[in-house]
Design a binder for these strands. Sequence first.
DNA 1: ACCTGAACACCGTTCAAGT
DNA 2: ACCTGAACACCGTTCAAGT
Lengths: 235, 235
Amino acid sequence: MARRADRSAEQPRAPLSRDRILRAAIDLADREGIESLSMRKLGQELGVEAMSLYNHVANKDEILLGIADIVGSEIYLPSTRSGWRTAMRRRAISARDAFSRHPWASGLMEARIDPPVPATLRQHNAMIGSLRAKGFSIGAAAHAFSVLDCYIYGWAGQEVTLPFDTPDEVGGLAEASLAQLPRDEYPHIVEMITEHILKPGYFYAAEFEFGLDLILDALEKLKEIPRAAAGDGGT
Amino acid sequence: MARRADRSAEQPRAPLSRDRILRAAIDLADREGIESLSMRKLGQELGVEAMSLYNHVANKDEILLGIADIVGSEIYLPSTRSGWRTAMRRRAISARDAFSRHPWASGLMEARIDPPVPATLRQHNAMIGSLRAKGFSIGAAAHAFSVLDCYIYGWAGQEVTLPFDTPDEVGGLAEASLAQLPRDEYPHIVEMITEHILKPGYFYAAEFEFGLDLILDALEKLKEIPRAAAGDGGT
DNA sequence: ACCTGAACACCGTTCAAGT
DNA sequence: ACCTGAACACCGTTCAAGT
């Protein structure tokens, strides 16, 4: 049906489908932010009235859950074939990357539990599986799981507010906020920006892996601690 | 003016003010969630039309910034009079408590930078000040700051989704999600719930302090590392 | 089977009008 | 100086009507 050259973006040929709706929703959220993702705008994006969407999707919530699941599925799933440390490290960096491509996704994934996001369940299951297979007690695995996910989601939350990709942009934002800051009220923030963040050797992106390795080092020791001492609930 | 006994909740006597509006907004957000905080409902809460609010506040954004700042001011401000570790620990636990009283606040505080929340600036300034005063290099202070805040905000983000106060409620939620879970698809999650979370000795609340102490232990060593090795940017 | 127009109950915000 | 009604441009969602 009409695979002509003059087909413009406003005239979608493919029939509407759940899948096309979710892809368009991700595009829209990436481009204009999650708060701009409305049923009406999404319909417009697909060359259709908002009400047509309800033929393929129960409601907006199903769309949010769907796009959270798609992004969640982009994250590396920890495997028992590698050591726990490399598995945890790869997953953490993969998650950081996914949330950096889709800054709205971390909020959606962590907030949603009533129907939980399937990708999140797979992630959690694989994490615990990897840790258990490599000798972590059940309590130590719970600790490791909790610390790592708080760190990863916490980072993703901060990064939403820092929308830059290159070191240059970090410097630009730092200079801008420095200019607005009441300098005598926050002397230590001023020092941090001028004496550290604006220095040539600083890379914001490296901060994530530094903290990650710091936590992984600490978990290394946790693994060797016997059940009770790791706070398993055995008194 | 009419300080009578029959004064009902629907008839506020005190004149409208920025302060009264912010207090009412916090109450409403605590009671019904931040997504229910609308200008119209807030006006209703104060016995006034929504449009009256604009006489005391520029727009809804100023309200969000205002209530984020009030909650942020409830958090213990790190002092240089105690050691860095106790200062960081007290602040972290105080922040956890504040975000647990006001689950909507962490999202507001971490998301807002265009006008930054003053309380957040004070917190960051005091954190860096405490670390610097106790011998952390500027780079080590940046690392410590980043890891701690990611962990704290990450925890707060997870806790939004887990609205319970007592160990009993944790168990209840765990049982409920276990019942809904496709058990053979997520065997390790099932094990975690049945063999750990539902066991008598488990306390969810203790998990936060465990991860916090694990990070603080790691930071202890970071302090002793010389400039370059701590990733300060000096090659 | 899929799409749509009109409608409903909500939003934030502006502005002229009231006191 | 403060409050309000009406209005505007938006939301998500339902439902009867169209093809």
